[in-house]
Design a protein around this nucleic acid. Structure first.
Lengths: 123, 123
DNA sequence: CTTATATACATAGGAAAATTATGTATGTTG
DNA sequence: CAACATACATAATTTTCCTATGTATATAAG
């Protein structure tokens, strides 16, 4: 008996939580880039954060699917180098949602900075 | 049959997610205040954030219990006005944890600001 | 030719964190 | 005595994410 192929999967597992901001991050990238596909998003996030944040596929793809189901994203597929790419783009509803999410995120960050004393309280 | 007391509970439910930073917030307050009790913490958070963030008890108490079980907090009870107060204070392990959590939070906020373009990228 | 790595998608199972919704009880104010 | 603030607690559920898989092609290294 032969073992023709032995797949060994070693995950880097350096992940440190997205804290509820995954949707906001994806939506913001799509606001700036018109259309993106999943793998591209993971690379962009890695690039911008200097490798600090690695989107796991298990987190990102379900999130994309959900936002599509919720009417915030639309999709189109292309075949590149014999590989399928699924592009995501903001719908009109999605464009409104980005603004809401961004405001919410800013408010949250501001409050967090106050609470953690990272930024000095004015008072 | 009498109904002696009818309790109607109306929650404000204006809550907008703590996004995984509840522990950090509590630990930071305890770093600054030596010892605090649950209700006091909710009031302090409300005060600092101008009412933006309201800690729900259902989130806070289990969080306090967990951190105590994990050895980060110690407790002592006092009786004030016939009401029990349960004070929480940082253990030595807790004091170390605050620093870790604060650094983690700063890194997270920084990355989020980069990704959401709230703070301009230097590059 | 075979292995490793990068590209590219997807889903199932489970853990963690927070919300919602309760429950108990006392003190104060109108 | 009703309403509100003070003060604790927990059960049930939902959301969100991570871990661990699975499939498949292209390319570079050995």
């Amino acid at each position: 008996m032969y073992i023709r192929k032995l797949y060994i999967c070693i995950m880097s597992t350096t992940n440190g939580m997205l804290k509820g901001s995954l949707q906001t991050i994806i939506l913001k990238l799509l606001q700036e880039n018109e259309k993106m596909y999943g793998y591209e998003i993971t690379q962009k996030v890695k690039e911008i954060t200097n490798g600090d944040i690695k989107l796991t596929e298990g987190a990102m793809y379900p999130s994309l699917h959900k936002m599509e189901a919720d009417g915030m994203l639309s999709t189109s597929t292309e075949l590149v180098d014999n590989r399928v790419r699924k592009y995501y783009a903001l719908t009109k509803e999605g464009q409104k949602e980005v603004e809401n999410k961004l405001q919410e995120a800013q408010s949250f960050i501001g409050n967090l900075q106050l609470l953690l004393n990272i930024k000095p309280k004015l008072s």
